[in-house]
Amino acid sequence: MTTKRFLATISLAAMTISATAPAFAEGELNLLTWEGYADSSFIKPFEKATGCTVNATYVGSNDDFAPKLAAGGGVFDLVSPSIDTTAPLIAAGFVEPIDTDRIGRWGEIYEKFRKADGINADGKVYAVPFAWGAIAFMYRPDKFEEAPTSIATLWDPALEGRISLWDDKSALYVAARLNGDNDIYHLTDAQIEAAQKKLVEQRPLVRKYWSTAGELVDLYKSGEVWISNTWAGYQSSLLKSEGIEVVEFIPKENAEGWMDSFMIVKGTPNEDCAYKFLNMATSEPGQCGVANVNGYSAANPVAAKQCMTPEQYTSLHQDDPDYLDSLLLWENLGPRLQAYTNAWNAVKAQ
């Protein structure tokens, strides 16, 4: 069954929605994206320069993209999923190929990203890399005599009730690495089971599994949690502005890496504005915009060099390709996704 027919099947629900949706005038751009990715600091000048009005809807997780697009098209023009969520959107036919000739700074983007499996299919490119970072770990330095260097610290009984972990399949990646299974995106059933066991073992020590950035910040702020994983750069800077000192670290078991890219939704009536936006996003305003607002690293190191201070350039690892290469860049799990999510749900069901 094709996507079209699938959409037709649920069109009853969709019809009521599209009937009430306003007709979008030319020059409007509707983004389904992360908070900060449509920050007014660089969107306002963009709107002024191009005449394209930007409306942003924010997602709380990568899981929100596919269901929103599956529930009917015509609402969003651009989406910004992470590299592990791009493949199903391409396979489901929700997004259009990118004409990279129309992206002026395309060649300056890290090759690792341009060539990534997640955004390439049948010789075509489907996404424009925007920002990246690590799923690092962080802790409160005032609570540790010795700086933690290993994931194993999150299994330390002495820290009972002070540990938090991201409520995501990423928890299995963490546990698998602790088990020494480093091919975290291709775990066998036995390895998933071992990771699940490890997480069940850890559960009594966990204060709370965090699901949003704000929640993790709250957990640190209210003194509940001393150590957790984190979206490197983001929560730590939010905490810093609250006056709470945290230190990020990459454990010796390594860390996952992520990369977010913009994709054009199939059938968008606002293609011109979409390409204008993509050009802005991959050049200085967008690249330093996301670095300043979210604390993430930029996908275009050339643009980053132009608009960042040398300190920022270094601290965001823009000059350090080895750092980027050392990260286990997220991959789509394909049909194995169910096995991972079921294992994670089973941990929480215990």
């Binding site: 997780s61 899981d63 596919a66 269901p67 399949k169 996704l337 999510t341 079921n342 994670w344 749900n345």
Partner: peptide, 11 residues
């Protein structure tokens, strides 16, 4: 769990 099946698991 239902929310997670409709979201994360895409099931």
């Amino acid at each position: 769990v239902i929310a997670s099946q409709f979201g994360a698991a895409l099931n």
